[in-house]
Amino acid sequence: MKNVTISMDDELAQRTRIAAARAGQSVSKYLAEAARRKIEADDAADNDRGRNRQLEAIERILAGPKWSVMEDGRMPTSEERNARR
């Protein structure tokens, strides 16, 4: 376990001591748990943003111009689709 020294203004330090006491924890444990929750929330938000970027990319592809595969008003047969031109 690492020891870390932090600086904060007097009012925040007092409020942190009070909040830790209400939670029945030391200031050190209280701040460590707060940091852990913040990091986990940030990681979850990053994952959500990554998923959203992928979804947006797929939506852009699907919203793009449609390819016309119809020939003479009908779908091509497998032989026509696979014919080398």
Rank of each mutant, 00 (worst) to 15 (best):
M1D: 07
M1I: 08
K2R: 13
N3F: 10
N3W: 08
V4M: 14
T5A: 08
I6S: 03
M8L: 15
M8S: 06
D9H: 07
D9N: 13
D10A: 15
E11L: 14
L12F: 13
L12I: 08
A13P: 01
A13Y: 13
Q14D: 09
Q14N: 10
R15T: 03
T16M: 09
T16D: 03
R17N: 12
I18M: 13
I18V: 14
A20V: 08
R22M: 13
S26T: 15
S26G: 12
S26C: 05
V27Q: 14
V27I: 10
S28D: 11
K29C: 03
Y30L: 01
Y30M: 04
L31D: 01
A32N: 06
A32S: 09
E33H: 10
E33V: 02
E33N: 12
E33A: 04
A34G: 05
A35K: 15
A35I: 11
A35W: 10
A35C: 10
R36Y: 04
R37F: 03
I39V: 13
E40T: 06
A41V: 06
D42S: 10
D42K: 13
D43R: 15
A45Y: 11
A45P: 01
N47D: 11
D48S: 07
D48P: 00
R49E: 14
R49S: 04
G50D: 13
R51H: 05
N52E: 15
R53S: 03
R53A: 05
Q54I: 07
E56K: 05
A57Y: 06
R60Y: 02
R60K: 14
R60M: 07
I61T: 04
L62R: 10
A63V: 00
A63C: 01
G64I: 02
W67S: 04
V69E: 09
E71M: 02
D72N: 14
G73I: 00
R74W: 00
M75G: 00
M75W: 11
T77C: 02
S78M: 12
E79H: 10
E79W: 09
E79N: 07
E80H: 04
E80I: 01
R81D: 01
R81T: 03
R84Q: 09
R84A: 06
R84T: 02
